[in-house]
Amino acid sequence: MTPEFRQKAITTCSDKIAKKGEGVGLSFYAFFKNRNDDPELLMQVATWWIRDHQLDHFEKAVKIRDMMRAI
């Protein structure tokens, strides 16, 4: 994943947490537009989410934000 994407993911998570609270969940699709304009990046994120970390479809935004910060 690119540094730009990681920052976008951290920002997305932080925004969701600010709006809906610490318990809000999201899926990796939350980081992408409805129209997939970067299939390579989508597959990188899906691989990181599903294969590498064996995360559920929906995870707590706090957890994902912290994981993205640790990369």
Rank of each mutant, 00 (worst) to 15 (best):
H53K: 10
K20H: 14
K63P: 02
T12G: 04
N36P: 05
M67R: 06
D66Q: 07
M1C: 13
L42P: 00
P3S: 09
R69H: 01
A9S: 13
F58W: 14
R69Q: 12
M1V: 15
I64H: 03
D15K: 08
D15V: 13
A18T: 03
T12L: 04
M1N: 10
R65P: 00
K63C: 10
T47M: 09
K33S: 13
D38K: 09
F5T: 11
E40C: 05
T12R: 07
E59T: 04
F32S: 09
N34F: 04
S27D: 12
Q44Y: 10
I17E: 00
W48I: 04
R6V: 15
W48R: 06
K63A: 10
Q54L: 13
D52L: 10
V24T: 13
I17P: 00
T12D: 04
L42I: 04
K19Q: 14
V24H: 03
K16T: 00
L41Q: 09
L55I: 03
K63Y: 07
R6A: 06
V24D: 00
I64C: 04
K63L: 13
D66I: 10
I10G: 02
T11L: 14
M68D: 01
I10W: 03
L26M: 14
K20W: 12
A30D: 08
A70N: 10
Q44S: 08
L26A: 01
A61C: 04
V45F: 06
M68L: 11
R51I: 15
F31A: 03
V24K: 03
E4I: 15
M68T: 01
F5K: 04
G25D: 09
W48T: 07
T2E: 14
I10D: 02
T12Q: 02
I10Y: 00
D52V: 05
A9V: 14
F58L: 15
E59W: 03
T11Y: 03
D52M: 11
M67F: 01
F58M: 14
P39T: 11
G21R: 07
I71C: 09
F58S: 05
W49P: 01
A46F: 15
K20E: 15
I71L: 12
